[in-house]
Design a binder for these strands. Structure first.
Length: 268
DNA sequence: CCCGTGCCCTGGCGGC
DNA sequence: TGCCGCCAGGGCACGG
């Protein structure tokens, strides 16, 4: 569930709390969430110099490596004093401040990976990541879309095409741009691409400024809840009147994803 | 290359 | 009340 605004909120929350701390040990309780072998040995002793974000990926900049962390659906970080291990806590980083950074993930979908600092942008997953909407130019995005027949919503969920959007913010972007999520990419005009980039940029920026959205079980860091869920126009609004035309919002499936759409405003 | 499907996971919910 | 099956979904592997 965390998309760009939620991940950015996590980054901003964690950075001042973790900057310059040393990872003195790591406990891994669920091996499958750690891709790198010898993770514990390699990360031990490294400082957290910085925390960056690319799309929905968090990048902890250490001394020799970066730790790439993807929260997927329900991954969360907590910082706290020593205590008994909690349910669904899969990785615990011991810090030199006698605090613990713990990673909590009910569905165990999140992943950790260590890659050397000198090459992490040149190898997957980050080498394959598309540009974020704010950095996208309409000409090259239009070129990426124009030969595809998949629905525009699926293309905007594909992080190789454009990075940072997930199910919530794609629905909001398409609503604002008045484009139907099922519209095939090869029917999208250059002008619509310009509009999509603008609305995606705006919605992500607005959501980030409000700390992201807190829906379902997601919240950024313990005690930090977003406010953008109050600004949603279509997502989760099934049967509620469209703000623009009063037509009830409907819920459909697009590529297997629950999708909210105004059947009047959003034309195919 | 392009696209669709299934997998990974678990808690929560609807149905009986 | 209890149990079963289904759903949610980001990213990737795999197959046609």
């Amino acid at each position: 569930m965390p998309e760009l605004p939620e991940v950015e909120t996590v980054r901003q929350t964690l950075l001042p709390l973790l900057k310059n701390k040393v990872i003195v040990d790591v406990d891994i309780y669920w091996d499958n969430c750690v891709i790198t072998k010898d993770f514990k040995h390699k990360i031990t002793g490294q400082h957290i110099q910085d925390i960056l974000r690319y799309g929905k990926y968090l990048v902890f900049v250490l001394d020799e490596d970066v730790m790439i962390s993807h929260l997927r659906m329900e991954g969360k970080y907590y910082i706290h004093q020593p205590r008994k291990k909690a349910h669904h806590e899969h990785v615990v980083f011991h810090l030199n401040s006698d605090e613990y950074l713990t990673y909590h993930d009910t569905r165990k979908f999140g992943k950790f990976e260590l890659i050397s600092k000198s090459m992490y942008l040149e190898v997957p997953p980050l080498s394959l990541l598309g540009k974020e909407p704010k950095d996208s130019d309409s000409r090259s995005l239009y070129q990426k879309l124009t030969h595809k027949r998949i629905p525009i919503k699926m293309a905007f969920l594909d992080q190789h095409i454009i990075a940072g959007l997930g199910n919530i913010y794609v629905d909001e972007t398409l609503y604002r741009a008045k484009i139907h999520p099922l519209k095939p990419c090869d029917k999208i005009t250059q002008k619509e691409v310009v509009s999509l980039i603008k609305h995606a940029t705006d919605v992500l920026e607005h959501a980030t400024s409000l700390g992201g959205s807190t829906i379902r079980t997601y919240h950024a860091v313990h005690g930090v809840d977003g406010k953008f869920q109050n600004e949603l126009k279509v997502h989760t609004k099934k049967d509620e009147p469209c703000e623009r035309c009063q037509t009830p919002i409907i819920k459909i499936k697009v590529g297997g994803r629950g999708t909210y759409v105004c059947p009047t405003c959003q034309k195919q």
